[in-house]
Design a binder for these strands. Structure first.
Lengths: 112, 112
DNA sequence: GGTTCGTATCGATATCAGTCGATACGACAA
DNA sequence: TTGTCGTATCGACTGATATCGATACGAACC
């Protein structure tokens, strides 16, 4: 006959409510856009601009990056809704997107 | 004599105060750790646990990842200070690290 | 001591992101 | 229309990272 073995099990209960992947993945995508020093500086720069509008003609120099690289980063920020692009004559101007960081704020408040 | 050319210049002033790279890079590193769906779910899972403590023995199954992959992600979270590891007998338990998200909260409040 | 089991590390692979030079596009100026 | 200039795209390279199987380590049990 089989003996009942008193195995010492992990005393912590298994998790019940797991955050769904359908929620975690879009949030991770947003964080991936934020997780770059150049883009963090770009966002802050637009936020600090007089009317929260910045022209990209001034940016490559201080940031130490080339023009294609700047264009690449700005596109990422616009695609994520973090910046809004507006064409003024020959120049492209950028302002902050609204509400785009709401999912991140909600996660931080609910989680940590 | 030279003629003054009325070139139409960009009407937006050049940025003055640029966020220093020494600030942006650590924050980007923290965001890189957060920018993964598995790690977002792990953090939320620990936060939702009864005493905010979770045992990793229950995690690979629901998350759909192998044990080495789980170990990899937990190490990243611990290294970033987002989780604190505590050995209890044979099991490793995890709780939330405190203050580790402060730089991110400050950035969000000051910027966006 | 030997076994079991939770966890970490190693090695390999595959995918992805940042960067830049070269080039194309497009709007305004002359 | 021709040129200039701001911007986007392309192609290529490089480095970082997520993943897993195999294996090693370490502590508790028998």
């Amino acid at each position: 006959m089989s003996r009942v073995i008193a195995t010492i099990d992990c005393p912590v209960a298994a998790p019940k409510n797991l955050m769904p992947a359908s929620v975690a993945e879009p949030l991770a995508d947003l964080l991936k856009v934020l997780a770059d020093p150049v883009r963090l500086r770009l966002l802050r720069l637009v936020a600090d601009a007089p009317d929260t509008t910045a022209c990209s003609c001034h940016l490559p120099g201080p940031l130490g990056i080339s023009q294609p690289t700047l264009s690449h980063h700005l596109k990422k920020l616009v695609d994520a809704g973090l910046l809004v692009r507006e064409q003024r004559g020959r120049w492209a101007h950028y302002r902050l997107g609204s509400q785009s960081l709401l999912p991140l704020r909600e996660y931080l408040d609910s989680c940590c």
